[in-house]
């Protein structure tokens, strides 16, 4: 009976497949770096460089695997069981959430220099070539007829930086206060036609669909978009002031202790602070924290989240939680 043979074959196949999966060569070590969306290109280079560095130092072969996605989604995956040795996310708030579940030791942000951020970035504007709407600064974004592309702050870490940068700008204007800032941000979001769920989705909307006059983006994303998609189509506008985005990195203590990868994971993070790591970050248009490494990026007046909003937890609670300011200004609350 051929059908019996088929069934036996299929059963054998599924068994073989499930048992053959976890096969690793001995002696080699594998790290998993769980990161957010815009760092794909950066870590591809970092991982290759680090593998050479580690092999030279110890003779051991290291493979760093990458996982990318929205910062919050990635943090949740680690909380729910994704075995990340290191996390390199968009905001400290997401790493705090992992720490709250006991996977990372409290006080992690003091373990490494510069608030555990080896490189920083900021929010800039990407406009169409020739800047037809004459967008120079944040207050140009709220003018009628200007269409602004930014992702949804409720689902995207990058979008939260955009929102807070706009808020900080309005607050720093002469006579600025929280009420004025709120009005400013509300007018800004009136000009937003689409809220994509992630930063890359917004870039695709702006670039591929041709929607909007200006895209609010991470500085490195803006440069990457220009390089990948054509310097003849877009240009970057740096506003007079912006927010200092510090994407933090840390080790997931529980995972490295279990896997026995603490040493190599720590070295990996330290490598990001080394001259070589800093040079790679600068090459990918991040702002290096080391004074020794030069950057071509324009000088901007930058504020930190702590200065303006008193830290991420408070910013998250006031602005982005359900019923918070963002829900209020978009009419999504009672």
């Amino acid at each position: 009976m051929p059908i019996r043979k088929i069934i036996t074959f299929l059963a054998a196949l599924s068994l073989a497949v499930t048992t053959a999966l976890p096969a690793f060569a001995a002696g080699d070590v594998t790290l998993l770096n769980v990161s957010y969306d815009p760092t794909r290109e950066l870590y591809q280079d970092v991982n290759t460089a680090f593998a050479q560095h580690w092999q030279k130092k110890t003779g051991q072969k290291v493979t760093v695997k990458q996982s990318h996605g929205g910062s919050g989604k990635q943090a949740r995956a680690v909380i729910d069981g994704l075995d990340a040795d290191v996390v390199t996310l968009a905001l400290a708030y997401d790493i705090d959430a992992i720490a709250d579940k006991g996977l990372i030791k409290p006080g992690w942000q003091k373990e490494l220099p510069h608030n555990s951020s080896p490189y920083t970035s900021t929010i800039v504007f990407l406009v169409r070539k020739g800047n037809p709407k004459k967008i120079k600064n944040w207050d140009d974004l709220v003018k009628p007829g200007v269409s602004v592309i930014t992702p949804n702050p409720k689902t995207s870490g990058g979008a939260r930086w955009n929102y807070l940068a706009a808020w900080a700008f309005a607050k720093h204007q002469p006579g600025g206060n929280d009420t004025k800032a709120r009005e400013f941000v509300q007018r800004l979001y009136k000009n937003v036609p689409v809220l994509d769920s992630g930063a890359r989705g917004s870039t695709n909307t702006f670039v591929q669909r041709g929607l909007g006059d200006v895209l609010l983006a991470w500085e490195n994303e803006a440069f990457l978009a220009i390089n990948e998609l054509g310097p003849d189509k877009f240009e970057i506008v740096t506003p007079s002031e912006s927010i200092l985005a510090e994407p933090p990195i840390t080790i997931v203590d529980k995972v490295v202790d279990k896997k026995g990868t603490r040493k190599v994971a720590e070295e990996y993070l330290k490598f990001l602070y080394s001259d070589e790591g800093q040079k790679i970050a600068a090459k990918h248009y991040y702002r290096p924290t080391s004074k020794k490494v030069a950057t071509k990026l324009a000088k901007v007046k930058l504020y930190t989240i702590d200065q303006v909003f008193g830290g991420w937890r408070s910013a998250q609670k006031t602005h982005f939680a359900d019923g918070g300011v963002f829900d209020q200004i978009t009419g999504a609350t009672k």
Binding site: R76, K154, L195, D196, S197, A321
Partner: peptide, 27 residues
């Protein structure tokens, strides 16, 4: 849908996206 919807709160935000949004806040 998320690729074509626009995802504006109150206007073009679908319920499955609300679920994702809540997860994003660890709720």
């Amino acid at each position: 849908i998320i690729f074509i919807a626009g995802n504006m709160p109150m206007v073009s935000e679908i319920t499955p996206l609300i679920i994702i949004t809540k997860l994003e806040q660890y709720d």
